[in-house]
Write a protein that binds this DNA or RNA. Structure first.
Lengths: 233, 233
DNA sequence: AGTCCTTAAGTTGTGCACATCATTGTCTAT
DNA sequence: ATAGACAATGATGTGCACAACTTAAGGACT
């Protein structure tokens, strides 16, 4: 927002993080759909650097399961098969519940305000349901939720799994496999419930609400995928 | 074991994995103690390669929290402070229980045999209690436990956290903060219990035994560290 | 004697040229 | 016409030289 040059200032670590977060965002928002080939040279040029630092970013994204590099062929955005999706969601459910039980932190006023702002943003979605904007708000909401626990390892694991699977859900929306207006409505109720739970200081309940919604959201997606195409090629 | 050359044959991915596993093993077995500086040039020479592929390995180990690189200074083996240790163990406990509940797999005869072999190795420890050998057997035991679930994401998360903290436990043993013979005795009983649980096909019980032992092991370490040095510098 | 600046050495980070590998299209022999 | 070999192309992987940076030692000035 503030600076024009994409990846210029700051330390090497800052530049790494900026490139990493940006490419991850593009993958999760389906700017780079599963199967897309990423050009190292092109990306390096775009970020105003050489292949060497960029390759470090791609290697990290590969370790996070978002990319896969094949020698002599290319670097591709990964897809997630049904088995992996099911397994990942099973773990995500358990971790979602742990957010409220392991090292919960009383949310600051700023964080509460942030949740309210997210609620407001989600309401604008009801008038103008845009999948991409929905995904972005969903992502911001997730990041805010992570701040409810002080347990750093738990945060890391949860984020890894979230970024690994959220684009599959978005893909279902884009493919009109699940109804966007329904999802927006349900999402709005989820935020409302969690804001209320946080308001009375019960993070455990907030986490349980979250768990329930992740679970139901997954079930809707699963049914939609299975009725349309039992096996994804 | 089979080949003399450390990192010669195979594809680039194989070489990467070999170097990664070897350096991780050295860190977890305290061949490289926390605070040690690792020389990129020396390591690259040892593995018969250049800095470029080795740096990729070091970057991965840094993302796993085992190393930390500082520009112009060096690459150091990380230590784990008490707060992080407590948080990590809290998550490890929950994940240990999930191993028996999420996607459990009936162990193959080969795996059962492996557990029995581990039991035999643990018994040799009682006659000759060596911390390093203990740590290696403990690591092999952990890897075997992971094969009790088919849930790949759960495996990954569990391994990450295990390798992150196990060297701290070993450090306590080396510092004689906790009694090695006691630990060996308890470890032997843990394997025995888990082998029995697996024998009757109850993986959930096996996981609960594991969880209990991880929890108690942590409590012993925690008390030892707190009585000796309340705050590690 | 003490403080500050300069300089030298050593480390990680970067850029570039080349090696290695997979793919594809073409040419030749049957 | 078709099957197989082969060369050309373009991708990732590797090696090396240099830049950026930190630290520590040494000397000059106060």
């Amino acid at each position: 927002m503030t600076c024009e040059t994409p990846a210029a200032g700051g330390s090497a670590r800052d530049r790494f993080e900026r490139m990493h977060d940006e490419i991850r965002r593009r993958i999760c928002l389906l700017d780079y759909a599963p199967g897309t080939r990423l050009s190292e040279e092109t990306l390096a040029a775009e970020f105003g650097t050489s292949r060497t630092p960029l390759r470090r970013v791609l290697a990290r994204l590969e370790s996070e399961g978002l990319l896969q590099s094949v020698h002599g062929v290319g670097t591709f955005v990964t897809d997630v098969d049904l088995t992996e999706l099911v397994q990942t969601y099973r773990v995500r459910l358990e971790l979602a519940e742990l957010i409220g039980r392991l090292d919960p932190v009383a949310p600051s006023l700023a964080l509460v305000a942030e949740f309210r702002a997210l609620r407001a943003r989600s309401k604008t979605l009801r008038d103008d349901p845009d999948p991409r904007r929905f995904a972005q708000i969903n992502m911001d909401f997730f990041v805010a939720l992570m701040r409810l626990t002080a347990n750093q390892p738990l945060r890391e694991m949860s984020e890894r799994l979230y970024f690994r699977t959220t684009r599959i859900w978005l893909k279902s929306v884009f493919a009109s496999l699940i109804d966007l207006k329904d999802e927006v409505e349900i999402f709005d109720r989820e935020i409302d419930g969690i804001v209320r739970a946080i308001g009375i200081g019960d993070l455990e309940v907030a986490a349980l609400i979250r768990r329930a919604h992740v679970s139901m959201s997954f079930e809707r997606m699963r049914k939609a995928v299975e009725t349309r195409s039992p096996v994804t090629p």
